[in-house]
Design a protein around this nucleic acid. Structure first.
Lengths: 170, 170
DNA sequence: CATATTAAGTCAGCCTTGTTGACATTCCAA
DNA sequence: TTGGAATGTCAACAAGGCTGACTTAATATG
């Protein structure tokens, strides 16, 4: 095989990090970390009649203002019925605005209102605070590796979505 | 402030990796990667009348054979009613065995049967295959960083659980 | 122009998995 | 012996997924 990517910094055996036990360990880390990752926004939302699905919608509308419903669907990976339920409440509550497309009038372009942007900020700031602390504690090299592994773990379609989002921010 | 942990390897500004944009980016990476992380087992389970909750129970019973219901509850972070529903079907279907404690007969100790262990293997092997590919692609340094950041992202209680699980494997 | 396709929205119904609250049983320990 | 802990169970509910069927409007295509 000769996968010579190198040896662990601790000087262990080659490819020790690819043993089943290490992989199980990584899976557990993902599980526990994702819980932490969502904990703070979830706590905020619990008092507001919204859930994690609303957070996700707010996040991606904020990241790509003017996105269409279809595009949001493919980013979130849910059915339109599921998204619609969430989107409807956000629009009714004045957090999201839906504008008919100028060039293609079938499309609806989604934007956050001021209130929507405010809630998005509150949620993502809570989430960022935790990530900031984790990044700080782990250091820049670790953050690079973190992102590299996560990216490699995505489905190809999602990786494309993920990278496209970055483009929009130049 | 003077957080002198260093500069990005690309030679960019100090603490560039702690900007709000970088943190948002990390959050999106977590979102998309977690989808990939659960995709394969979910696909397998869809054909079997089980869900992600069953996978989690099987995983942690396998990781800590003989664990009590209460211990499993605190690892999974759900209510006993929620866990019980899942556990009941697994026991009925002969995938999990529940033995009355010898020293404390109130406690139930949980074990996988052969069938349970087989399903657990199938699920976790699918999950590990993806992680193995991601680890290989990212390299050992990245994996170290990945785990470091994830660990820093956990709630302290979860971090304790996570580390305790490691102890049990020496 | 006629027709097919697409985007969006809606209704109804279902499933999984989470939640509370109430309550029974069993058993350990003070 | 009594209080509390661990477990299990019942009922009811909510969020957020899903499928399927259908409408409306607008665009694309023959």
């Amino acid at each position: 095989m000769a996968e010579m990517q190198g040896r662990g910094p601790a000087g262990g055996d080659m490819l020790l990090y690819l043993t089943d036990e290490q992989l199980r360990r990584g899976a557990e880390a993902m599980f526990f970390a994702y819980r932490g990752f969502t904990a703070d926004p979830d706590r905020i939302l619990a008092n507001k009649n919204y859930g994690r699905a609303h957070h996700r919608a707010l996040h991606f509308i904020n990241a790509a203002p003017g996105t269409t419903v279809n595009n949001l669907l493919s980013i979130l990976g849910v059915t339109k019925q599921s998204l619609n339920r969430v989107l409807r409440t956000l629009i009714e509550d004045g957090l999201v605005e839906s504008r008919v497309g100028r060039v293609d009038k079938r499309e609806r372009h989604l934007f956050l209102t001021e209130d929507g942007a405010a809630l998005e900020r509150e949620l993502s700031e809570a989430q960022r605070a935790r990530m900031r602390a984790a990044y700080k504690q782990a250091g820049p090299e670790a953050v690079l590796g973190f992102r590299r592994v996560l990216e490699a773990m995505m489905d190809p379609d999602m990786r494309r979505q993920y990278r496209d989002l970055q483009e929009g921010r130049g």
